[in-house]
Design a protein around this nucleic acid. Structure first.
Lengths: 210, 210
DNA sequence: AGACTCTACTGCAGATTGCAGTAGAGTCAA
DNA sequence: TTGACTCTACTGCAATCTGCAGTAGAGTCT
């Protein structure tokens, strides 16, 4: 019966610590920054603040009428305390779901074009994120960002993302050039080239050293 | 009523395309490689092959008695066809859940020690994965790998992982050195240093160029 | 006046997780 | 030789989370 606070609850609670938001605003704000660290569905983002209210960590005020009601959520003192306590709890292991890599692992069931298409889609997806992060940092410079006192945190966050995207893009270039040299997706196995690469990797060296 | 094949179904189907496995073996095998592209719970990995049987994409044979029963799953021709068709479908966008980054974004609610502890935990988690991938590539060299004909695929896959882990580790070093210069986690905001970094990032340049 | 988009949600089925529980087989020590 | 422990090999269940469809008001544009 009594709801439990999950990591997602704390993510929403952390947003509420910045200011009060409506449910809708929370879903939009979560798209702007939270998404890159803690991607959650719009549906959950609507449900979490309700749970926070149930737990006494936030309060609601209903504005408007009938179906056009806006629910404005505000953090409580108990909410701020809970957020403080959360910071010293154990962090969950990262979880990276990259379907393009799954396609790569079993690329021998499809054509070279299928594999290259999966890589293109991956590139498109991360390219979008990449541009969004660069744009976000621009808003800190032109004064358009609502929380400039958080610049020092955003800067480290964005550095992580940009580094990661750049390394993904370097890999994509490398992967495409290797795939170009394959006769097909199937049964290539151990060749002088793949053995060379395997040897590097087993030695913890990246073949992308260039 | 009729079960639907999800990406996880195809992931398991792809494993079955290599050879027949028991449910238990599937959960173990998924830990060895699939986990890095498509992390799924043991529970799901037990349920998926049952669904494949229901869909006619695999068959089961029950071995042993009572509770010690082993269920051996084998792919069918329809399963191989389905796998082939899957390769040309749209790939889902990557999804990266990194709680340590969430902690970083809201680090001003805790102490510097809390933040550094979250980074340490992150480093420990990726370090484990990093070592496991290096070790996996070693098994291709010493002949211990059961599917050497897949070396060309594994090599690209592992290159991705090693590159990513190395970029994470470079970032951790950078982040720690920046955090060391903070007076506290709170309200630092825009300083000459953070502005310099913001400017680089808004220009799509990584401060880790060094 | 009708089509469309944006705000602002809710309900529901289905996908996924985590945890506890069951049970046999093998090891190892007192 | 018996009790403790680990490993194999799962299943059941509650709770979490997602995706999609549906509702409804307000503003815009044609």
């Amino acid at each position: 019966m009594a709801a439990r606070a999950t990591t997602s609850s704390y993510a929403v609670l952390a947003l509420l610590s910045l200011r009060s938001w409506t449910g809708y605003e929370l879903t939009q704000q979560a798209q702007r920054s939270l998404r890159y660290a803690w991607p959650k569905s719009e549906r959950l983002l609507y449900a979490e603040p309700k749970k926070l209210v149930e737990l006494g960590l936030a309060t609601v005020e209903h504005e408007g009428t009938g179906n056009g009601t806006r629910n404005v959520y505000t953090i409580t003192d108990a909410g701020r305390r809970a957020l403080n306590e959360w910071t010293s709890t154990r962090t969950q292991a990262p979880r990276l779901e990259i379907e393009a890599l799954l396609r790569l692992l079993f690329a021998d069931h499809g054509s070279r074009e299928d594999l290259l298409a999966a890589l293109d889609e991956f590139e498109g997806d991360i390219g979008e994120h990449h541009r969004a992060i660069v744009e976000l940092m621009g808003t800190y410079l032109d004064g358009g960002h609502p929380f400039p006192e958080r610049t020092h945190l955003s800067v480290l966050f964005a550095t992580f993302q940009i580094e990661m995207f750049k390394s993904f893009e370097r890999w994509l270039e490398f992967a495409r050039s290797e795939i170009d040299d394959w006769p097909s997706t199937q049964g290539l196995g151990m060749t002088p080239r793949t053995e060379e690469l395997t040897r590097l990797l087993a030695n913890d060296q990246s073949p992308l050293g260039s």
